[in-house]
């Protein structure tokens, strides 16, 4: 059954990226209104919940694959997070940052496949 590992790796990536975006959004909110704000608490709780699912998926994948096999997928998360931070969080992403991030992602993939 080859689709199952692919689906689980995709789900792991999606939950990991979503969790990071929620964390950043929660911290932005906390800087404006503090930690006792309902909005901050809600976003932070959602982030922790999504990250917990991601963590369990990661554990399960580590039981079946080498860390080095999973690392290239983690490498791709660098690019996805940078792009989504620019689109969803309106962070300023310069061409220099894009080039640097692409090189890091390529390097991470190369380190793990070698």
């Amino acid at each position: 059954m080859t689709w199952l590992p692919f689906a689980l790796i995709s789900l792991w990536l999606a939950t990991f990226v979503t969790g990071q975006l929620l964390f950043k959004r929660a911290m932005e909110s906390s800087r404006k209104t503090g930690f006792r704000n309902r909005r901050t608490i809600t976003i932070l709780t959602a982030g922790i919940a999504v990250m917990t699912i991601s963590f369990l998926l990661n554990l399960g994948l580590l039981q079946h694959f080498d860390l080095s096999y999973l690392y290239p997928f983690q490498g791709s998360s660098i690019v996805i997070i940078m792009l989504l931070a620019a689109i969803l969080l309106k962070e300023r992403v310069t061409p220099r940052l894009i080039i640097g991030t692409l090189l890091i992602a390529a390097g991470v993939a190369l380190v793990s496949i070698s």
């Binding site: 220099r96 940052l97 380190v111």
Partner: peptide, 22 residues
């Protein structure tokens, strides 16, 4: 560490240096 892995490490370092400016 294989030459290919050193190449990957070098790429990551170059990328980090580039990102370090922003």
């Amino acid at each position: 560490i294989s030459p290919l892995r050193w190449g990957g490490i070098a790429l990551v370092i170059v990328g980090l240096v580039i990102v370090a400016k922003p």
